[in-house]
Design a protein around this nucleic acid. Structure first.
Length: 639
RNA sequence: GCUGUUGUAGCUCAGUUGGUAGAGCGUCGCAUUGGUAGUGCGGAGGUCACGGGUUCGAUUCCCGUCAACAGCUCCA
């Protein structure tokens, strides 16, 4: 048979060689390092016997697939260790995941303190050097086998596999687990691993099911890589926006209002600066800005469908015996504005922006700093348009979001979310709307993944996801196409034909929520914001009180030029003031003493270059204003 | 909401095998008037999250509530 390899070369073998044997034949080194294979694009175990002509890839720890194999094997070792220490434990599932692996277990009480003990047992198992063996059983036998082993979750998993499936198992020593593979050769090949945490997780991801105990861990091919990963995670935690937000006074949370953030002066500057920027680009893009009430009556929310579909997330109250709800979304208010006067096809597309503060009752366990709150400002806009305008309008929004994210240097990924179970509207409308979004993305060549069933109840959406410091992703921008609300509200425009027509609506946000965006910004820059959004841009540091008057002159000049400056007039040494300004992540420090006062100049120290030397104040102001105007991002140096 | 963990000064944390608490930083005062990441000395500051229970006595043990953290579920 003919085996074509990754580099295009090919080899001839007789029948029935395993992937490992082929790897061994290519080179002894590759044979030792081989962890998994890929036959004609399908990932397979290294024990797989190759029977016919194919294209073969061999994965080592350098490949993502190889690392996944190590982690998956580590999860089996974890399961065996748990079974040895807690024989009553019932095993559920144990896959490899981004950055590690986990195993879900039931009928055990395991807390973080127990992890060390389990790790010791795992080390023992790796030392035993038990080889992973694969075997299969027909369905009925497989079920009986797992029943005999007392593993009800495994029985349930097998029962959900196709009727005619051959069920595969892997064993290592005396331990057996239902598994599709692939796995490494033997337990000793899992060298560098660590258990990280214990958490609850619902069986099969449904909150209707029992909550199991999930043990998280990670594994790498080398101890040095594991250490590097753990160090990186430690460093990433220092960028947490909740920590930095406290350190530099951006926002605070109070027990009196769980999930309702308090913005402090520095956070307010950040927020207002972002809003100023937002207004600037939205005027440019032809948006009008409106503002709709915080609270509207029940009949409005019944018309919109929120009363039926979003009730558990809405805060309600009674005014003069009538039910009112605080808005969880801005769209119904926007529709009322649209309907407040007759619209012509000449008005379309009509782009109505609104920085709307919305309130949603999120579950207590979902709250997370500024990333997930119960009241937030959406940089919303509703675009009313004719069907033929859909693609261009969506493209315009995609371009705008891309522009904003690029300005901050964000990496993002895009998801297309389709019709959920709890939805309103006809299948035809959903199909049309989903195609509209897909077409726009395809025409722009934007890469995206499809998220089936994850759309809003009134329409499909394109979501833009950004990463926080430890790699969790958060949905920020979103574009939702909606045929339903215009219908429910009987929105109309007069066409060129003089007849009434129904407009189509886009809901979209760029930042998503300003709160979440600030959270992402904070973690992305570790609080060292680009000068144009830095709450304090310049700190003036007099060497001693003797130069306070000159320092004050400098401060006034900076402020007159629109620069956010503060003065540190405490009776402290200059080194102390510099340290303090650095800890507050202030981009520029202006140091003035005898020399500067005499020469009518300033001495500049920045987060970007350290000491920048002595220059005249006007020159500094010009340079700074240029940096701010162009929204430049200067690289921060570590001293 | 669920599972687990946590809650001590403004912040970061130590401590009490049950006898009402301590450090560093910050803050305030005094001295120091300085040259690019921490000047020295002194003072103030805590119903040990909240509510019950056990006890002669609870910050400590038990129960409940609230909040935070990690994950699940859900979502901008």
């Amino acid at each position: 048979m003919k085996i074509t390899l990754k580099d295009g070369s090919s080899k001839e073998y007789g029948q029935g060689m395993s992937v490992r044997e082929i790897a061994m034949d290519i080179s002894a080194g590759l044979g030792r390092m081989a962890l998994a294979g890929e036959i004609n694009g399908k990932v397979v175990d290294i024990r797989t016997i190759v029977k016919e002509d194919c294209t073969l890839n061999i994965f080592t720890a350098k490949d993502a697939e190889g690392l996944r194999t190590i982690r998956h094997s580590a999860s089996h070792i974890l399961a065996e260790a748990v079974k040895r220490l807690y024989p009553e434990a019932k095993l559920a599932i144990g896959p490899s995941i981004e950055d590690g692996f986990y195993y879900d277990i039931d009928d055990v009480k395991i807390s973080e303190e127990d992890l060390e003990k389990i790790e010791v047992e795992m080390k023992k198992i790796t030392k035993e050097n038990a080889s992973f063996e694969k075997f299969t059983k027909p369905r009925e036998e497989a079920i009986a086998y797992m029943e005999e082993l007392g593993e009800p979750y495994k029985v349930e998993l097998i029962q959900d596999l196709p009727e005619d499936a051959e069920i595969s198992f892997y064993s290592q020593g005396k331990f057996v687990d239902l598994c599709a593979g692939p796995h490494v050769g033997s337990t000793k090949e899992v060298k560098a691993f660590k258990l990280l945490s214990v958490a609850g997780a619902y069986w099969r991801g449904s909150e209707k099911n029992k909550m199991l105990t999930r043990i998280y861990g990670t594994a790498f091919s080398k101890a040095s890589e594991l250490e590097e990963y753990l160090y990186r995670m430690e460093e990433a935690k220092k960028r947490d926006h909740r920590k930095i937000g406290k350190e530099i006074g951006l926002f605070t949370m109070m027990e009196e209002g769980p999930g309702f953030p308090f913005f402090l002066p520095n956070g307010m500057i950040l927020k207002n600066t972002l809003v100023d920027y937002w207004r600037e680009i939205h005027v440019r893009e032809g948006y009008d800005e409106i503002s709709t009430p915080m609270m509207l009556n029940r009949s409005l929310w019944e018309t919109s469908g929120h009363w039926d579909h979003y009730r558990e997330n809405m805060y309600t109250t009674i005014i003069d015996d009538e039910d009112f709800a605080i808005k969880p979304m801005n769209c119904p208010g926007g529709l009322l504005v649209y309907k407040s006067e007759p619209r012509s096809y000449r008005d379309l597309p009509l782009r109505m922006g609104e920085l709307g503060l919305v309130h949603r009752h999120e579950k207590s366990g979902a709250l997370h700093g500024l990333m997930r709150v119960r009241c937030f400002t959406q940089d919303d806009a509703h675009i009313f348009m004719m069907p033929e305008q859909i693609t261009e309008e969506i493209k315009g929004v995609v371009r705008l979001i891309d522009e904003v994210y690029n300005l901050f240097g964000f990496k993002y990924h895009v998801e297309l979310s389709t019709k959920p179970e709890n939805s309103v509207g006809s299948d035809e409308d959903w199909e049309l709307a989903t195609e509209g979004l897909r077409t726009a993305l395809d025409e722009m060549g934007t890469e995206y993944i499809v998220n089936e069933g994850d759309g809003a109840f009134y329409g499909p959406k394109i979501d833009f996801h950004l990463e926080d410091s430890i790699g969790r992703t958060w949905q920020c921008g979103t574009i939702q196409l909606d045929f339903q609300l215009p219908q429910r509200f009987e929105a109309e425009y007069i066409g060129a034909d003089g007849e009434k027509h129904r407009p189509i609506m886009i809901h979209r946000v760029v930042f998503g929520s300003i709160e979440r965006f600030i959270g992402i910004l904070t973690e992305h820059f570790a609080g060292k914001f680009p000068t144009w959004i830095a709450p304090v841009q310049v700190k003036v540091l007099p060497i001693s009180d003797k130069y306070f008057n000159y320092a004050k002159e400098v401060l006034d000049t900076l402020r007159e030029n629109g620069i956010r400056a503060q003065i540190d007039s405490r009776a402290e040494k200059i080194g102390y003031k510099i340290r303090d300004a650095r800890l507050n992540r202030i981009p520029y420090m202006v140091i003035v003493g005898q020399k500067e006062e005499e020469e009518k100049c300033i001495s500049v120290r920045s987060r970007f270059e350290g000491e920048e030397g002595t220059i005249s104040l006007p020159e500094f102001v010009d340079g700074l204003n240029e940096e701010i105007r162009t929204k430049k991002i200067r690289e921060t140096i570590e001293e």
